[in-house]
């Protein structure tokens, strides 16, 4: 007879725990966004209350937009991320098609060679990468970043895409070949459209570390013209440490694009992370 109350109590405990941790997860971010819209006095006197008509102020944003070129940083990040994703997906799909479709000598070796990069971080080669970029005059160019991130993303992309390439029906490809299509047409016209969902998953996966990286922009492209939003935020805040309005506004500007993208793609991302266990 006490089954239902116990069940209800359990549910309440589960929701209490999850809700509590949700608060821990989002409160810090909310606090920053909220306070970025307040004047200095309100930031310090009532940090926990949302902006009201009396405390509302955009002074931080005015400083940021006047002093830092956030629009340009944002654009740089966009170019680097989209450029890298394009090459990761194109080259990754081509390589994984070759590795799964054809039998040839060295197939297994190349697969293992690429898999090595999944576990070994590319950062360990930074010293030689910088030397190479300096020699070829690519320091302080967005292209240098795109190259590095493409190399960084390829191993995992090949790994994931190979799994999906195997599921494409052989009959379809062979039908295309009987009709006289070349291997290139078979790949680009028949196979590629079929693995689009997998490509989307790989894109979302690969995007996060590229967009958020500080190490390579700091070392390979620190010039004003090539700063990404992550590096731009870091440098800007370093200069304006004492201007709380500006710091809070810069943080909000920097985290908003990632947050918006996440909210749009979260379902796909989580499905990818959990390998389809979540529908």
């Amino acid at each position: 007879m006490s089954q239902v109350p116990i069940f209800r109590m359990r549910r309440a405990v589960v929701h209490g725990l999850l809700g509590g941790y949700t608060l821990i997860a989002i409160l810090p971010v909310l606090l920053i966004i909220m306070n970025s819209f307040k004047d200095r006095k309100a930031i310090f006197n009532h940090p926990l209350s949302p902006p009201g008509p009396a405390s509302f102020s955009l002074i931080g944003y005015e400083t940021v937009l006047k002093q830092g070129d956030f629009l340009a940083y944002f654009q740089n990040s966009l170019i680097v991320t989209i450029g890298s994703l394009f090459f990761i997906l194109l080259f990754g799909a081509m390589a994984s098609f070759a590795l799964t479709e054809y039998r040839f000598r060295g197939n297994v070796f190349i697969g293992l060679f690429l898999a090595l990069g999944v576990m070994v971080p590319i950062r360990l080669g930074t010293i030689a990468i910088l030397e190479m970029m300096a020699k070829s005059g690519l320091v302080n160019s967005l292209f240098a970043l795109i190259l590095v991130y493409t190399a960084q993303g390829l191993p995992l992309a090949c790994f994931v895409l190979s799994e999906f390439m195997r599921t494409v029906s052989a009959d379809l490809k062979n039908a295309g070949r009987v009709d006289g299509l070349s291997e290139y047409v078979v790949f680009f016209r028949l196979v590629l459209p079929l693995v689009r969902p997998a490509m989307a998953t790989v894109a979302i996966f690969s995007m996060i570390p590229i967009w958020n990286d500080l190490w390579f922009p700091l070392i390979l492209a620190p010039s004003e013209a090539t700063k990404t939003i992550t590096l731009g935020t870091q440098v800007f805040i370093g200069q304006f440490v004492t201007n709380w309005n500006a710091v809070l506004a810069a943080l909000t500007l920097s985290l908003t694009p990632a947050l918006v993208l996440y909210l749009i793609f979260s379902r796909q991302l989580i499905r990818g992370l959990t390998a389809g266990a979540v529908k």
Partner: peptide, 15 residues
């Protein structure tokens, strides 16, 4: 295979 191997080898393995 060439593009992926070229980028991966030049920017990851060789460095």
């Amino acid at each position: 295979l060439a593009p992926a191997l070229a980028v991966y080898t030049t920017l990851m393995v060789i460095p």
